[in-house]
């Protein structure tokens, strides 16, 4: 898979409820996904500070995908609505400055949706492999 030996470092930001639940459902079903996808947990997607995402994208992540409860199903009622706004701004900032907002994905995954989580991990991994390394990662001058 993937040419020239590039193995991206991917962070998978998961909320502690549905996102994590999805990852645990995947585990209960022994579904496999690439080892280079590393979970980063926050209580709620609404608790994912933009600073965390930027930090990851500047300091070593080739991409970051965010999953949490579907809109309307947030454990904390509103967190994912707010997260969606934050993510939109993050992506817009990155895109406007030519930093590739497409290295940041938002996709809802519910507790039971283990397959959806695993599919997402594969899909995002392939997506980032297609893009190649995140140029920011190797820049000393960030």
């Amino acid at each position: 898979m993937g040419g020239n030996g590039f193995i991206p470092k991917i962070l998978y930001a998961l909320c502690a409820w549905c996102g994590t639940g999805g990852s645990e459902t995947a585990a209960a079903l022994w579904l496999k996904y690439p080892e280079n996808v590393r979970p980063f947990r926050v209580v709620c997607t609404g608790a994912l500070d933009p600073a965390y995402v930027l930090r990851a994208l500047i300091e070593g992540a080739d991409g970051m995908v965010v999953s949490g409860c579907h809109p309307g199903d947030c454990h904390y009622n509103l967190g994912n609505f707010r997260a969606r706004r934050r993510l939109a701004v993050m992506k817009e900032v990155l895109n406007t400055l030519g930093l590739d907002g497409d290295r940041l994905w938002l996709r809802w995954v519910a507790h039971g949706e283990g397959k959806r989580l695993v599919d997402t991990a594969f899909e995002f991994d392939a997506h980032i492999r297609g893009k190649g390394p995140n140029p920011l990662v190797k820049r000393w001058d960030t």
């Binding site: 898979m1 579904l31 496999k32 996904y33 809109p71 309307g72 509103l78 609505f81 707010r82 969606r84 706004r85 934050r86 993510l87 939109a88 701004v89 992506k91 994905w105 938002l106 996709r107 809802w108 397959k115 959806r116 695993v118 599919d119 997402t120 594969f122 899909e123 392939a126």
Partner: peptide, 26 residues
């Protein structure tokens, strides 16, 4: 301020649509 407000249905362009893959591995 936009960050304290929200709409139920908005910003779907910023969500990645999911189409189920038939296999786990591409």
């Amino acid at each position: 301020i936009p960050f304290i407000d929200y709409q139920d249905e908005e910003l779907h362009d910023y969500e990645e649509p999911y189409i189920e893959s038939t296999t786990h591995r591409p």
